[in-house]
Write a protein that binds this DNA or RNA. Structure first.
Lengths: 348, 348
DNA sequence: CTGAAAGCGCTAACAG
DNA sequence: CTGTTAGCGCTTTCAG
C-alpha cells in the first residue's frame, strides 16, 4: 500500500507537497498539483485514515445509537432515519458508526469511550424524552452532538444545544384541515396517553384544527397505547358512537392500520383514516399518512453539526449566536383506502 | 487526555509495561499489573484507538452496507439483522460502521476505500444474489468478509468463502407439516416468481411437504411479485377455487398480510395463513410467521470471521480446513388470526 | 510556493 | 518480567 512518500517520490516532490495537494490544494502551483494527482491515481494511493486521525485528532465519523428493535410498526422511522443519515454522511465524506446500548446511562458510557479514542467526532441522539439526561451530560462533557427530537421539558430547554425536530402539531392540523375541506365534519382522533411530548403535540394539532367544541372533542378522541389492536378497538368505539366521526386521524400508522381494519369491519371501508410516519405498512395497505421529511431532518442535523459544508465538527453552541435548532414541517401523503382486497376479489 | 506515558509515570513503570498490561496481561507480574490498572482507572486513561490502529493495522471494526429503504414490509429483516449485529459486535468489543452504496460496484469501491484506511477490518455482505459479483471480487482482493446469504450459482459456490444462511426450505416444510398435523388437507402456496434463490428454496419446502400430487400443486400455488395487494389478489384466486386451500403459506409477510385480508373478505377469517420473516407487522396483526434466527445468524457470522472469541479477523479461507459456512433452521411463530378487529367491535 | 524536521499515541522488537 | 529504541503515515510548524 503506497504512502505519501511513495507518491512524493513518484511525482518528484517532497512529502509535504503531496499533503498540501490533498488538504490545501489552493496553495500548490497548478502544474505541480497535476503531477501529484497523477502519481496518486497511478499508484492507487489512499491516505491512511488512522494516521490522519492520530495527527488531526478528528475522525470525520459520527456515532448513532441503534435501538433494540421494538415491536410495533412505528419503530421503522428510526431505521429510515439511519438510512438517510448514512446517505447524507457518505455524500459529505463522513462515516457513520452505530452502537447499541441498554439504557441512557449505558449510551453515555459508550459515547465517552468512542469519543476518547477519537473514533467518533460527534453524535446524533434520537428519540429525546421528557427529562432526557443525555443532553445535559453531553453538553457538560463538551461532546458535540445534535438531537433528533426537541427538548421536552424546561430544564432541557434551558441547556443550549442543537436539535432538529418535525412539527407534529402542524402536520396533524394540516391533515385535519385537509379532511374538512374534503367534506369531513367530525374528524376523530386516536392518539397516545398524555405525557409523551410527541403525542401531545400531535393531539394539539388535531384539537386546534378539528373545529368542534370541547364536548365533541372529548367524545371524538381516544388515547391508547400504540398498537394495531388498540387502534382497532378505539376506532370501533368511535364508530359505534351515536354521532360517529366521518374521518379519523391517528398518532401512528399502527393505530391507523387498526382503525382502518375496524372501519371495514364496521361496514365503512371508505372512511378516511390518516396515520403518522408513512411507514411501509401504510404504503402497502393504502393508508394515508403524515410523512416526516427525513431527508431534510438529516440535512439540517448535519448542517448544524458541521456547517453547510465541510466535515469539521463545530463545538457545541455556547452563546446565542446562530440558530441551533430547526423545526420542519411534515407532509401529508394521500392514498385511497379500500383499493386493496375488496376490489381484488374476483366477482365482487 | 492521559496517555500511556502518564499512566506509566503514575504507576512508576515504563511505558511498555502499561502496554503489556493492556495487551498481554499474562506476561506481567500480578503486583505490577494491579498498580498499573489502578493508575489507569484513577487517571481515567483510555487508549487512543487511532494510534493503536496505525500501529497494529487493524481496527476491530466491521463494515456493513445499509440498503436504501425499499418499500415493502420485508425490508425490515435487514434492519433487524443490523440491530443484532451491533449488539453482538459490542459484546465482543467490535465496532460497526455502516455505509451506503448505489449498486454493487459502488459498494465494492467503498469497501476498498474503507479498508485501505484501516477503517474497517472485515465486511458483512447482505442479500446475496444470483451471480453476485461481490464475492469473487472481495475474495480476489483478499478483503475478509462473510456473507449473509448462501451462494446462489455454481460460479459463486466455487469461490471458497464464508457465509451464513437460513434454511428457508426447511422452515416452510416445517410450517406446512405443522398445518397438516392441525388438520389442513390442502395447503396453498403464494410465493415469488421463479428465479430468486430464496424464493425457490422456500417454495421447494412447500412442495416437499404439502403431500398432494403435481396437478393439485399446480392449482394450489401462485407466484407473484412481493406486496400486500399481490398477496391479496393471489389468495382471493385460491379461495375462489372449486377446491380451495384450507391453509396458505406465503413467501413473505407482505404476501401473507394480503392473504389474510383476502381471507377475511372472503368470509374465512379463521383460515390459517403463515408468513415469513416474522416482521413487526405480523406480530401486530396476529399473523403466524416463520422467523429467521437472527441472533444465531449474527453469532455464526462473527464466529466465522473472528473465531469463537477474540477480535482478530481471520483471513479469508483458502484451503478446505474448517467449515466456512452455516445453514440455520428457522422457527415457526404461531399466532391466532382473527383475534383482532372482529372481536374488538362491541356488539358483535 | 516548496522542503526539512518533529511528533501525534501506541506497540513490536529487542536487550537487560 | 521490565525498560529502551524505533517507527506506523500523516500533518503542522518553520525556514528557504
Amino acid at each position: 500500500m503506497p504512502t505519501v512518500d511513495d507518491v512524493a517520490q513518484a511525482a518528484g516532490v517532497s512529502r509535504q507537497t503531496v499533503s498540501n495537494v490533498l488538504n490545501s490544494p489552493e496553495i500548490v502551483r497548478e502544474a505541480t498539483r497535476q503531477r501529484v494527482l497523477e502519481a496518486i491515481s497511478s499508484l492507487g494511493y489512499r491516505p491512511h485514515a488512522s494516521a490522519r486521525r492520530l495527527r488531526t485528532r478528528k475522525s470525520a465519523t459520527i456515532g448513532v445509537r441503534i435501538d433494540p428493535w421494538r415491536d410495533g410498526i412505528s419503530g421503522a422511522v428510526l431505521d429510515r432515519f439511519l438510512h438517510k443519515l448514512t446517505e447524507h454522511a457518505d455524500a459529505r465524506g463522513l462515516r457513520v458508526m452505530v452502537f447499541s446500548a441498554a439504557d441512557p446511562d449505558d449510551e453515555l458510557a459508550r459515547i465517552r469511550r468512542l469519543r476518547e479514542g477519537s473514533d467518533v467526532d460527534a453524535f446524533v441522539l434520537t428519540a429525546t424524552t421528557h427529562g432526557d439526561e443525555r443532553i445535559r451530560a453531553l453538553t457538560e462533557q463538551g461532546v458535540p452532538f445534535v438531537a433528533f427530537g426537541r427538548p421536552w421539558d424546561p430544564e432541557t430547554s434551558a441547556v443550549r444545544h442543537r436539535w432538529v425536530d418535525v412539527d407534529g402539531r402542524a402536520g396533524v392540523a394540516g391533515a385535519v384541515r385537509h379532511l374538512r375541506e374534503q367534506g369531513a365534519r367530525r374528524v376523530g382522533w386516536i392518539g397516545w396517553p398524555h405525557g409523551s411530548g410527541t403525542g401531545d403535540e400531535r393531539r394539539a394539532g388535531w384539537e386546534a384544527a378539528c373545529g368542534v367544541d370541547a364536548d365533541a372533542r372529548a367524545a371524538l378522541a381516544r388515547h391508547v397505547e400504540d398498537g394495531v389492536t388498540e387502534g382497532s378497538r378505539a376506532a370501533a368505539e368511535l364508530l359505534a358512537l351515536p354521532e360517529p366521526p366521518d374521518a379519523i386521524v391517528c398518532a401512528s400508522d399502527s393505530l391507523a392500520l387498526g382503525a382502518m381494519i375496524a372501519a371495514r369491519t364496521a361496514g365503512r371501508p371508505a372512511l378516511p383514516v390518516v396515520g403518522f410516519d408513512d411507514t411501509p405498512v401504510a404504503a402497502a395497505v393504502g393508508l394515508s399518512s403524515i410523512e416526516q421529511p427525513l431527508d431534510d431532518v438529516v440535512a439540517a442535523a448535519l448542517d448544524l453539526l458541521f456547517g453547510p459544508a465541510g466535515d469539521d465538527v463545530r463545538p457545541n453552541p455556547s452563546s446565542d449566536e446562530e440558530p441551533t435548532d430547526r423545526l420542519l414541517a411534515p407532509r401529508l401523503v394521500e392514498r385511497r383506502p379500500g383499493h386493496l382486497a375488496l376490489d381484488a376479489i374476483p366477482g365482487t
